[in-house]
């Protein structure tokens, strides 16, 4: 946990610096009231302070339970799922959102989780029907349709 704490603190320190730098050209005070840079300044300041407290705490603490990383198999599943999720965003304009979502479900069920074929197809069909029925037919939402037109 020591490494995680220090890393979280570093990320927050970094974000604080980003906030400070990107809002430095904005007014801190405007007429009667705080300006655009007032809140960013104090949020960043608080972030720096609390990050430091976290680092000090992590260094002083004796016991450090290790981070609960998944095993190789688990890691593979998580990474593949995350990759598949991002692929939805990338492929949706090309293939259509609903079509991509269906492909993602089949990929997740059959490739990543290695489920049986028929229950997987059934789950996918039920989900697709729900999406079409509720979102498209009923609420009239226009999904990106892509080359195939679905």
């Amino acid at each position: 946990m020591k490494a995680a704490d220090i890393l979280s603190a570093c990320v927050m320190l970094f974000l604080a610096v980003v906030v400070l730098i990107s809002t430095r050209h904005l007014p801190y005070w405007a007429d009667f009231a705080p300006g655009s840079a007032f809140s960013p300044f104090w949020v960043a300041a608080a972030s720096i302070l609390v990050s430091c407290v976290l680092v000090v705490g992590a260094l002083r603490r004796q016991s450090h339970p290790p981070i609960d990383w998944p095993d190789r198999q688990g890691l593979r599943r998580v990474l593949l799922t995350a990759g598949g999720l991002w692929a939805i965003v990338v492929l949706a304009p090309v293939l259509g959102l609903v079509a991509t979502a269906v492909l993602f479900m089949l990929f997740l069920l059959l490739v990543v989780l290695r489920r049986n074929l028929w229950p997987s197809l059934l789950t996918t069909a039920v989900t697709a029907a729900l999406i079409y029925g509720v979102f498209s037919a009923w609420l009239g939402i226009a999904f990106p349709t892509g080359l195939l037109g679905i």
Binding site: T81, L85, I88, V89, A92, P93, L97, V98, A101, F104, M105, L108, L109, L113, R115, P119, S120, T123, T124, V126, T127, L130, I131, F135, L139, I141, A142, F143, P144
Partner: peptide, 21 residues
């Protein structure tokens, strides 16, 4: 069997709020 459905419906639902990827 629930997980893929949860993921997909969450994403489609978020898409529906702004109609933007």
């Amino acid at each position: 069997y629930l997980a893929p459905g949860i993921l997909v419906i969450s994403l489609i639902g978020t898409f529906a709020t702004t109609l933007s990827l």
